[in-house]
Design a protein around this nucleic acid. Structure first.
Lengths: 227, 227
DNA sequence: CGACGAGTTGACTTCTCTCAATGAAGGTGG
DNA sequence: CCACCTTCATTGAGAGAAGTCAACTCGTCG
């Protein structure tokens, strides 16, 4: 299962509040760092939820599997994002590095202790959980009711909003991951992306077709039907 | 989550904790009751989230709409369930009564005040939000990766676990609602349910085909592929 | 009684999946 | 640097699951 860096050396509470990263969460104590190779497992569903993670660099996919191997990715976590916070004893989804990824990690326990005594800490726990819930609610609408092109358009716009590197979308994940996030097959994702490219809504930059420039954001938004 | 026995009986704020209903939440102050007629709106997406609700009798659907009318129901709320808790200023989904439904309602504000001072109240807010998140995570897997029969089987088992009236499933919602919950059409739901009936997995009792007895729970579970 | 809403069923369409072939990119080891 | 291998993306052809459209039945309720 999981190998890990050096982890925790908790000494006092002082949790959550000394990071410069938006919605940052940290402990000035009890932190350690770790780097996962591409494809490496961070934790598996039902593993004890011992740590909470913050992505420093790279990307993580969190997913559930059916017993016959079908996979649903519930979320991608990019630089700055926190994941693995379950408010429970075990993880409900598995997590893997999409590319080489380094994370900060710290003990869940120290967070919970902090929450008991510090309303501020508790407020952040609630706020992060609520953010995940909101994302899940939006994603249910996408999964249940959108067409393949609408799904892909929504995905590109979501990533465009999160991977802000000045006009260039540089996707860390491949077609398979996108498909499992959107409830499609990789072929259908490929066809949808290439359809958008043929229609001059976007264009590819690199040769891997993971670097994308959005040419017509308005038209792309028109595929991402508003609620 | 948290088991609740009789829980604390905090003397003052006395929020959350004097109900005998599982996952009960109440305020001894600021409570009132209301009854909605079948189909009546409780609140709409983006309405200010002024109240939190607990179903006393009946059923509520919470959903999102696309601009062209496609609907995704995110959850049904049955007797005892709490809904409308957003940890935000506005509701992210709309809510309507599925059948005639009475609810307890109380001001969100009083909850938030309680949370600031009472760690116990805060803990329950977090716990309820986490419960909703877990449901949404499971539902994403269903929406994105399950076949129509698997979806219907999972739905029946979910309802069977929640509407415990001794062997008889008495569904408050119609085929259209079920379809919009499962990301299907009502015809596909009808075909799946009737397929299960033909295969002697379940049988209909009333004439409306909303009362169902599960004859072969094991076989029904086999359609609801495990994670 | 009659209108309406809900559920079922059939025929047909369509969207997405499946299977398969091909090509490009990147890594490895000689 | 090159040959080879693996992985990833694209594309086409055909199959299949679910959607659409429509007809019909059966309760319910005014």
């Amino acid at each position: 299962m999981l190998v890990r860096g050096k982890a925790d050396r908790a000494s006092r509470p002082n949790l959550l509040g000394d990071l410069d990263i938006p919605s940052g969460l940290s402990a000035s104590v009890g932190i350690s760092e770790f780097t996962y190779r591409k494809g490496q497992e961070v934790y598996s569903e039902n593993d004890p939820a011992e740590y909470v993670y913050q992505v420093r660099k790279g990307a993580v996919r969190r997913y559930k599997l059916l017993s016959d191997g079908r996979r649903q990715i519930g979320a991608f976590h990019l630089s700055g994002d926190i994941f693995g916070l379950e408010n429970a004893l075990v993880h409900r989804l598995s997590a893997e590095a999409v590319v080489e990824t380094s994370v900060r990690l710290f003990k869940r326990q120290s967070l919970e202790n902090g929450a008991e005594t510090d309303a501020n800490v508790f407020h952040r726990l609630l706020s992060m959980t609520t953010k995940n819930l909101r994302h899940a609610e939006d994603h249910m609408l996408l999964l249940g009711r959108k067409s393949s092109v609408e799904k892909v358009a929504a995905f590109l716009l979501e990533m465009d909003g999160r991977l802000t590197s000045a006009g260039l979308l540089s996707l860390p994940m491949g077609r398979r991951d996108i498909a499992d996030y959107l409830g499609l097959t990789l072929e259908t994702v490929s066809r949808a992306v290439n359809q958008l490219q043929r229609e001059a809504v976007l264009k590819f930059i690199g040769k891997t077709h993971r670097e994308i420039v959005i040419l017509d954001r308005l038209r792309l938004s028109s595929f991402d039907i508003p609620g």
